[in-house]
Nucleic acid binder design. Structure first.
Length: 565
RNA sequence: CGGGGUGUGGCGCAGCCUGGUAGCGCACCUGCUUUGGGAGCAGGGGGUCGGAGGUUCAAAUCCUCUCACCCCGACCA
């Protein structure tokens, strides 16, 4: 590709709308342009990166027996109504066709897979199957953000396994985990595999592949001792207990103390000696109290799992009606609703609200002084002890680049995907689903590897391996030599980008750094004077000066084009 | 959904408070010079100031409504 003719609109300055590093660099390097919130066009360089990532994904999916298919983006409502997901997903784009029939845009494809399996799979002899596609998904995200990291339209590799039983599902799941590790290794990413929430879907288990990055939306807890790793929506940590004073149960006046921090200040005590009482309203359960320690944050996913249903925070007037006090003075004593307490509150005595404005009670012990169910509710914080081995946990911000999910029969049963087993009995097909976001891989690679001058692509997913700079194209000797090297790369199947623009050297070098190809080949004055061409590694900035005849050999032997490991 | 912010030429911004001929840098076009880390000089083209309505002799500027985009939140009781 010749830069003089290519659509590679690099930007000198950071675009005003970009915050995340990968977002700024993808715009500045001319990889993508935004059409609307969370909707992007991929320009030639961005497209090449996605193509290279997809090629790696295809190789590894095919290697575990995956068969590539393409399923529709436009779906009839019927299959979603059958699976029970037509209502209640606010992210779903819905529309009607000209006859008025309900349709939607696919945000995932379990329903279509189950539909296809229902028609085409009949016997245990037809199983197992692995079907995958690399297809556009449409989700009306509440808040698109961080460039291509969370968008309303995005490419996803989604695969689906069909198995006769749970043991077979375990094998398919393990095969996917191995394939995913190879994919992310080959893409040059640092990542963790963590336990994740199966959601309210009743799934049988799931893991996420998480690439550490400040731009990430998720947090994970990691144990350096035993390898325990989990999304914070699931991760359990054992917090250090406070020193409990030998106080007796008594009322204390706490005027104007609304938050745990204010209460701790008024009473001059450790915030860990306070119980925060939170009021939620669930559809089936009704009002409930959730208790966490004063220094802890409640994780709503954990509460939802404990309740077995979704819920909402109580309105301030509801709190007053239910408990007779404003939110700052409420507590779990003598209440008529279910009380869930975080496990950290199993021991010790605490300060709780008295359900009278401006009054708290200290010396209260959960379980002894009021009935409650102990469950894990608090969000794990760095430094808490690992639930497996007791060593301190670290908490890291991450980008979710892939997930694997044991579905079971949630979709196969309602859509009638069944087979006949060896005894001739009809059985539901056991499914798994597995996703990878190619654009997130690209963004994560930028986040993890870029330096102050721009992108540094892993060679496996770089749009080009070699960036040839003809320093001054008006110098016939330089231009001709650069052309020859470019042509020679083509003959040796080395993908090269030739900067043949009539630009000043500084512009070309800055762009080469920004675009981030692993190797830069510079043909300039040194060539005119001494026949020397420079081959420079983008990542290490190491440069070798070689005769033009040796350039190809130097490129081929360069460590910059080999993936580590 | 809640809160905050921003919309002025392709990009980045000033001007708005205090109404009076729409500006700056980069980019673009022409010429000359320059050519190893985002060149210099000279000349030039390009803007319904997000949109609609209103106030006024006069609106980028004030008022109302609206659209779009960005950030934070959607635990902090």
């Amino acid at each position: 590709m010749r830069l003089s003719k290519a659509l590679v609109p690099t930007l000198r300055e950071d675009p005003a709308e970009a915050e995340a590093l990968s977002h700024k660099l993808m715009l500045r390097a001319g990889l993508v342009r935004q059409l609307a919130a969370g909707i992007y066009a991929y320009l030639p360089l961005g497209q090449r990166v996605i193509d290279r990532i997809n090629a790696i994904i295809r190789e590894e999916m095919n290697a575990i027996g995956g068969q590539e298919i393409t399923m529709p983006v436009l779906h009839p409502a019927e299959i979603w109504q059958k699976s029970g997901r037509w209502d209640g997903i606010p992210e779903m784009f819905k529309l009607k066709d000209r006859k008025g029939a309900d349709m939607c845009l696919g945000m995932t494809h379990e329903e279509v897979v189950a539909w296809l399996a229902a028609r085409e799979i009949r016997s245990y002899r037809d199983l197992p199957q692995i079907w995958y596609q690399i297809q556009t998904k449409e989700r009306d995200e509440a808040r698109p953000r961080s460039g291509v990291l969370r968008t309303r339209e995005f490419l996803m590799k989604d695969s689906y396994t069909l198995d006769p039983d749970l043991n077979a599902l375990e094998r398919s799941y393990a095969a996917h985990e191995r394939a995913y590790r190879r994919i992310f290794d080959r893409c040059g990413l640092a990542y963790h595999v963590v336990q994740s929430d199966t959601g309210m879907m009743g799934g049988l288990g799931s893991h996420e592949f998480m690439a550490p990055s400040a731009a990430g939306e998720d947090e994970i807890a990691l144990c350096g001792g035993c390898g325990y790793a989990a999304n914070v929506e699931l991760a359990r940590g054992v917090p250090a207990p406070p020193d409990v004073p030998g106080w007796t149960r008594e009322e204390v006046a706490t005027p104007n103390a609304r938050t745990a921090a204010e209460l701790a200040a008024v009473l001059r005590i450790d915030p860990r000696l306070i119980i925060k009482t939170l009021v939620y309203v669930a559809a089936k359960t009704g009002p409930v109290l959730a208790l966490v320690r004063g220094d802890h944050a409640l994780h709503e996913r954990k509460l939802a799992r404990a309740l077995g249903e979704e819920f909402r925070p109580a309105h301030p007037d509801e709190v007053r009606t239910l408990l007779g006090a404003p939110a700052g003075s409420i507590g779990p004593l003598d209440v008529r609703m279910p009380v869930l307490a975080d496990e950290a509150l199993k021991t010790g005595t605490y300060v709780v609200g008295a359900n009278r404005e401006g009054v708290h009670i200290r010396g209260v012990s959960p379980g002894r002084d009021f009935p409650c169910r102990f469950v894990d509710l608090h969000t794990v914080a760095a430094g808490e002890a690992c639930p497996e081995c007791g060593k301190p946990l670290a908490v890291e911000r991450v980008i979710e680049i892939g997930n694997i999910f044991k579905l079971g029969t949630k979709y196969s049963a309602p859509l009638g995907a069944a087979y006949l087993d060896e005894q001739g009995r009809q059985q539901p097909i056991v499914m798994g689903s597995y996703g990878i976001g190619p654009a997130r891989i690209a963004a994560a690679a930028i986040e993890q590897l870029a330096d102050a001058d721009g992108i540094i692509w892993p060679p496996s997913i770089a749009p080009f391996q070699v960036h040839i700079v003809a320093v001054n194209v008006r110098d016939a000797a330089q231009a001709a030599a650069a052309e020859e090297i470019y042509a020679e790369c083509g003959r040796h199947e080395i993908e090269a980008l030739l900067d043949d623009r009539d630009e000043r050297p500084g512009v070309k070098f800055k762009d080469a750094d920004l675009l981030g190809m692993p190797l830069r080949v510079t043909v300039g004055n040194a060539f005119v004077k001494d026949g020397i061409v420079e081959v420079r590694e983008r990542r290490t900035r190491r440069e070798s000066r070689v005769a033009k005849a040796e350039v190809l050999a130097t490129i081929k032997s360069s460590g910059a084009l080999k993936m580590p490991g």
